[in-house]
Nucleic acid binder design. Structure first.
Lengths: 143, 143
DNA sequence: GGCTATTATGACATCCACTTTCAACTCGGA
DNA sequence: TCCGAGTTGAAAGTGGATGTCATAATAGCC
């Protein structure tokens, strides 16, 4: 899984004539070994702890590259920060966002996806992607 | 409809000990007589055309007030601007956002809402609100 | 209609999360 | 090893949102 994503990114880098660098490797490692849904800053601070001479701009640019390479996806949950999550090939899921503790769970529901497709096609709309987020209280915060 | 919202806002203003001002009336008129999903800036420019001495900050603050009063809702569609849409009492709907022309259509689907509720409850999650957006090409842009 | 306390306004400053710039540095092929 | 092209990181720039503050307007009370 982790290995597969490294391969995808390595291929992407090669194919685009980009270079493999220490920073990119470090950032990729940090990204893949993290909880999902990190903000740029969270990842930056995490990396910074071990490698003090890594720049914010590099983390920022590298995450963009991950997104282009298809191993990460940009997300906005309304907290003012862009977050990145790992994506597997063709994989998609939606989110349950806790408004109290900020935790983010994922879910998938095939039926909902189908209904979305129906809504869209009945209006001549062609879906490229979608986002579905449920905001509320997670199990632990309800207690 | 328009009248009802004016009433709601007037009551809100009265109840909070706020004042009724020319600007607020103008902004409310402009807001209610617009396409939905205006950004602060769009509304500001639109108003500015007729009333050159109205400030951006006032539009910004007034829209926040509308949201508090329950006649508007803040939305983010990832274009970097906060948009506001009109809301009727208890009303909810989702969006089809065209990635080419930026147009935004609305839709409702009761079955999807029910499925969302099921997903949530099966995980002990309590939904407060949700957002569902389908991004893609609208009918006209597909041609 | 005046008075006054309170709230609102608007020009401007500031914040914040990126995003770009640019000189120095690194990578990889010849 | 050399060189051209890509990369890095500190710092400056952006753009939208939000805060500041002196001035203006409003509502309630004579």
């Amino acid at each position: 899984m982790k290995r597969a994503k490294k391969k995808i990114f390595a291929d992407f880098v090669a194919q685009r004539g980009l270079k493999s660098t220490k920073q990119r490797d470090l950032i990729l490692d940090g990204f893949l070994s993290s909880d999902r849904h990190l903000s740029i800053e969270e990842l930056y601070l995490k990396l910074r702890a071990k490698h003090p001479n890594i720049g914010y701009a590099t983390v920022y640019r590298t995450l963009k590259l991950f997104a282009e390479a298809g191993i990460a996806r940009e997300m906005q949950f309304g907290d003012g920060q862009t977050r990145y999550e790992q994506v597997g090939e063709g994989e998609h899921h939606d989110h349950l966002v806790c408004t109290r503790c900020g935790s983010i769970e994922e879910f998938e529901n095939e039926t909902i996806e189908q209904l979305q497709a129906e809504v869209a096609s009945s209006r001549g709309f062609l879906i490229e992607r979608h986002r579905l987020e449920l905001y509320g209280l997670c199990g632990s915060c309800r207690k």
